[in-house]
Every structure is written in C-alpha cells, then in structure tokens.
Design a binder for these strands. Structure first.
Length: 466
RNA sequence: GGUCGGAUGGCCGAGAGGCGAGGCUCGGGACUGCAAAUCCCGCUACACGGGUUCAAAUCCCGUUCCGACCUCCA
C-alpha cells in the first residue's frame, strides 16, 4: 500500500483522506462516464475534468494510474419502460440506437480533447459488457443478494446489504417512497428500495440480450459494478462521479460490488458538484444547455472553460456565465502572451522555481485546491522579484497540472474581411491626417463589425471583440 | 418527511481562532488628440440571536433563509 500525499474529500467518511495505491503498482481509478444519448454539456465536462486533475497530479508526482471510464449505451432507464433514453433518441433521429450511441460517443471524446482532458486507459461500453453483468448478477443471486421477481426481472435485495446508505446518509427505513414521486407498488419487488439488475424485455425488441432469466437488458447500476471489478481487478482506489450519482447510483453500485466480493470494493468516493449556468440549473427545459462547441462558435478557446473550473473548487456549486468565460479567455490569452515573452530571457532561479511549484502542488494535494493554485500563479505573474525566465519555468511546469496550453502562442487573429480591412485602412489614414472626427467615426463603425481599434505609439492595432 | 451542503463587500469568491486573499465591476489618477490597453490609488464584508475565549467570519448552542438529492441527471 503506497500512501500518496494527495488528500481528497471522501463522501462516505465526509472528511479528507489520503489517496492510496493499494496494489503498490498503479492507482486504480474508476469514473462514471456519459450516457451517450445526447451531447455532453459543459456541466458534464466539469465532472470529467475532476478525474483529469487527479490523474495529472498523480502522474506529476510520479505514480502510475489506470483509469477506467464506462460508456453507457444501454440500460439507462427512466422509470417508464418506453422512455429508455437511448431508444427514445434513436427514434427521434430515426436511426439505429447503436449508431446514435456511437455518434455521441465520438463527440464526447472530441470534447474531452478540446478541454485537454486526457483519455482514460479504457472506455468499456455497457453493450459490450453484457456477459460480465450476467455473471455478476448470477453471483449475486447465488449468494442471496438478488432474486428473480415474478416479472422475470432480477432485483437486488437492498436489505441484504448491511451498510446500505453509507455514502448518502440515507437509511432504508427513511427511504419511504412517495415524496417526490408517486410510488406505485409493482408487486415484483420484495421491498420498495430494491432495484432492477436485469430488466425483462417485455415488449422491447431493440437492445436486448438473452439471459438465464429471459431476454432483456441490464439495469443501469450493475454496469459500473461489473466493469470496475473486472477491469480494476476487484478493487477501486478512487471512484469518481457527479454529486447526483451519490444516490442512488453509487449507493446501489457499492451494495452490488461489496456483496459480490464480500468486502469493501471502493476505497474513496469522490463527487464533483454541479454547475449552474447564469444562475440556473443547466437543462433542456430551461434552455440554457451550453456545449463546448458553443464556446468555439463564439471564438472562445474551450480551455477558457478549464480556467473557469480551475478557479472554483470542484466540491462547490459554481455559477458559470458568459461573462466569466470571456474573462477566463482573456486571462488565458494574457498568460500565453506573457509566457511566450518570458521565454529565453535572463537566468533562472532554481530555488524559486522549486519552491513555487511545491506550493502549487501542495494546493493540488489539498483536496484539489485549484483556486488557490491559480491565485499563486497570478501572484507570480505580477511579481517584481521573480525573473522572467524563472516565471517561464514555473508556468510551463505548472501547466502539466493545469492543462491550459500556456506555452502555446496566443491565438492567431481571425482575418478581417475585405470591407473591414478597408475601414481599418481608412481609419489609419484619417487619423494619420489628424482628422479625428472621421477616425472616431470609423472606429465606431468598426466596433459594429466586432472590431476594436487601439492606438499605440507606432500606429493603430485592432482585435476582435468577444 | 429523510439525507447532504450552503449564507462573506456592488457582484463572484478564498479563508476555518489573532495579520483585511484575489478577481470582476465601479470611482479617482498617470498615459492618450479622444478612446482602448496597461500601471498606480480607492471601495473595510462575513445571515440572525446567544455562548466559549485575552481574541470569533472561523469553535459551541439556537434561529432564519437558500440550494441539492430522495429510485431521471455530471
């Protein structure tokens, strides 16, 4: 057991815990991935960034990591059968459900790359892990944690698992149904809190598989148990996901996994808080869903999002706004421009570099206190005592953790069109001739075009307004 | 009803017993033909009521308000 210096808040124990490498070889990380029935929005990305930050930090400290993230392409059900998300979307797009899943999965990977989120070692798909799940379900029936209902569905017996509720704090007897949902007793479950491991096909014809209990498809929670136990060799050092998954998903997953191996299957449960957009929960019905592509469409660097996320602790709910994104974009541009300017000048101060990096790493190790690390970088940026070359070294090394491409040259400017160039030229001439009334008029016209003109000692320059 | 979190200046947000984080906005100044950018200066806050302490935004007790989850969700 290797105890790393990384401390992270464990939802189950409600306190910071050290991340440990239980097999002495590599950190075993499992993260709940997307259900690929729609585009992943920026809120999803925040959760995926959480895994990236921990993995970058671990690797920076010299540890090996094995990271598994599932792709849910089947079985993520609504209560209502007819509304399986995959199938509903497939119907909407008039495509084969697997085709739909494939398309959204590809987009998911694209968005991760845009945010410099490094890929997992493996992305197992639920649809390709049916055998694993069948085996696990059989094992659970075998050791009396699950039963086949009269409806040919297989249910997990919640009461067979002693510490059910340890993650969320819910107690089985308090989980009385009926507050938010009208609970209808379907008769097949022995207990209201039991959940389906295997759903009988009933009338369904797509995305179903044969099973000992009859054709059907897996429940949502079972895939994460099956995959994490299989691909991480029956023990997870760190399990990640969004806060909403704390209950019931992770509670159920824990019950399944622990029951299967007759022990604790996950050392630490870590949850990322949700994101609001302009003060409200991001949702289709509110109409405020923001995608990574939307940033690109607005000519913003997707990494500006990363800046926003880094400036807020992963464990606090944050409100994202276009204002905060554009501000972050400006910071990114400023840093890149400065970092490039700091390069290849003066001498470095190895002690200064080491001290600052250690302090930044210490912030990361302290439950990913990225806002504090960002602040340290702002201080270093402004310091009068640290040499430029030293600043360059600090920023370039810190970027291994931040993932902001700080060494990249500032974004090349989009070219203006012929008419805009003409206006710029006219303005330069008017100003050169001392015709300020005309040059100001042209500056206003250019502003309408989204161009901001600046006058410098050596003439005019311009940039796009965001 | 149960569970988990919150409440800090105009706004956003750190801090977790004693030194007013920082960012954004705004106001003043330098620079500028004017702007912009940049730099300098300014803006003294911790929901409420008790308590502990030499000292409380921070700890304790109580209250109010807000959000999330409760078998959809990152």
């Amino acid at each position: 057991m290797i105890k790393t210096p990384i401390q992270i808040f464990d939802t189950k124990l409600r306190s910071n815990q050290s991340i440990c490498i239980s097999n002495d070889k590599f950190l075993r990380v499992y993260g709940c991935g997307p259900t690929v029935y729609r585009d992943a929005h920026v809120g999803n990305m925040r959760t995926f960034l959480l895994a990236d930050l921990i993995i970058r930090l671990s690797k920076y400290l010299g540890y090996q990591v094995k990271f598994i993230q599932n792709i849910t392409d089947v079985g993520h059900m609504s209560e209502d059968f007819a509304e399986d998300k995959m199938l509903a979307q497939a119907k909407l797009e008039a495509k084969d459900p697997f085709e739909v899943a494939k398309a959204y999965e590809a987009k998911f990977h694209t968005d991760l790359a845009r945010l410099n989120i490094k890929p997992a070692d493996l992305y197992p798909k639920a649809s390709e892990s049916i055998d694993l799940m069948l085996q696990l379900i059989s094992d659970l029936i075998e050791n009396n944690h699950a039963y086949v209902g009269e409806d040919n569905c297989v249910y997990f017996a919640a009461q067979s698992f002693d510490t059910y509720g340890a993650i969320s704090g819910n107690r089985l007897d308090s989980l009385k149904p009926g507050h938010r949902f009208e609970y209808t007793e379907d008769g097949a479950k022995h207990f209201h809190a039991d959940w389906a491991l295997w759903k009988a096909a009933a009338g369904r014809t797509q995305m179903i598989w044969p099973a000992p209990w009859g054709a059907g498809f897996p429940g949502w929670h079972i895939e994460c148990s099956a995959m994490s136990l299989k691909f991480l060799d029956k023990y997870v050092d760190l399990h990640l996901g969004g806060i909403d998954l704390r209950f019931p998903h992770h509670e159920n997953e824990r019950a399944q996994s622990n029951s299967a191996i007759a022990g604790e299957a996950v050392a630490l449960w870590v949850h990322g808080e949700h994101l609001l957009f302009e003060g409200r929960k991001m949702s289709k019905s509110t109409g405020n869903v923001v995608l990574v592509q939307d940033l690109i469409d607005k000519h913003l660097d997707p990494l500006a999002l990363r800046v926003c996320f880094l400036e807020n602790r992963y464990r606090s709910q944050m409100d994202l706004t276009w204002q905060s994104i554009t501000t972050a974009n400006q910071l990114l541009e400023r840093w890149r421009s400065k970092v490039n300017g700091w390069k290849s000048t003066s001498t470095t101060d190895p002690q200064e570099i080491e001290g600052n990096l250690q302090a930044i790493v210490a912030d990361f190790c302290n439950d990913l206190d990225t806002p504090r690390a960002m602040q340290k970088l702002r201080d270093i940026e402004k310091s009068n005592t640290i040499s430029d070359a030293t600043k360059y070294e600090i920023f370039s090394k810190a970027d291994q953790l931040l993932g902001l491409d700080l060494l990249k040259a500032p974004a090349p400017k989009r070219a203006a069109n012929a008419q805009q160039l003409e206006l710029l030229d006219l303005r330069a001439k008017a100003r050169g001739a001392g015709d300020y009334a005309e040059s100001d008029r042209l500056r206003d016209l250019l502003k309408v075009e989204g161009i901001e003109v600046r006058d410098n000692s050596d003439g005019q320059s311009w940039s796009w307004l965001i």
